[in-house]
């Protein structure tokens, strides 16, 4: 729900001296991404992906740096980043579990599976475990309806999940 606005007027931006958008990343964007598009603005999403893949999430300072680099306003970059579900504006656990909750998965037992995962991790959807290892998220269709129920753990898709085989997946993670 991208359209839920938060009051940011009194928010303090945490800053650090070292930039998130390093010179190496800037060079990578300048050489490989920006020439692909007619405008620099079009590189917003690739830039956000790049910083997120490097740093894990998107601090406000990083978005300001991206805005400056692409010649945009910081509010534009924030606007784009908040619209899409995959961009993290706050830190998350080492492993993010995205459990698909769309129709095909629900028909084949996703609700009871989700309850079991919640019980095992001791967290609700949207929360992170105390040790910072797992974040549990609900997500709409992952495009794997033929092998429902399914879930993504970071970038890896797990199909035909049962409570047992998913348990062993979680156990095998560091």
């Amino acid at each position: 729900m991208a359209w839920i606005a938060k009051n940011s007027a009194t928010m303090q931006i945490e800053r650090r001296d070292e930039p998130y958008l390093t010179d190496a990343l800037k060079k990578q964007l300048e050489d490989q991404v920006i020439p692909r598009y007619d405008t620099r603005m079009a590189a917003t999403m690739p830039a956000l992906h790049l910083v997120q893949d490097t740093h894990g999430w998107l601090p406000h300072q990083a978005m300001e740096e991206i805005a400056e680099f692409l010649g945009l306003t910081a509010s534009h970059v924030l606007d784009t980043a908040t619209f899409y579900e995959e961009y993290w504006l706050k830190p998350h656990g080492k492993y993010v579990i995205w459990v698909c909750q769309s129709l095909s998965c629900e028909l084949l037992g996703q609700p009871s599976l989700l309850e079991k995962i919640k019980g095992h991790l001791g967290i609700e959807v949207g929360e992170t475990t105390d040790d910072g290892r797992f974040t549990l998220m609900g997500v709409e269709c992952l495009g794997s309806c033929g092998t429902a129920p399914c879930a993504l753990v970071n970038h890896k898709l797990h199909e035909n999940i049962t409570a047992d085989n998913f348990q062993s997946v979680l156990d095998s993670l560091e």
Binding site: A2, R36, T39, M41, A42, M45, H49, F83, Y84, E86
Partner: peptide, 29 residues
């Protein structure tokens, strides 16, 4: 001629053709 891959970021509405273009241009979909 060029073919580039553009990665979305999780928004169903970007499957609508004009929202897809907005997203391609770096805006919200």
């Amino acid at each position: 001629p060029d073919l580039f891959l553009h990665r979305g970021a999780g928004a169903y509405v970007c499957g609508e053709e004009t929202a897809l273009l907005e997203s391609l241009e770096g805006k919200r979909g």
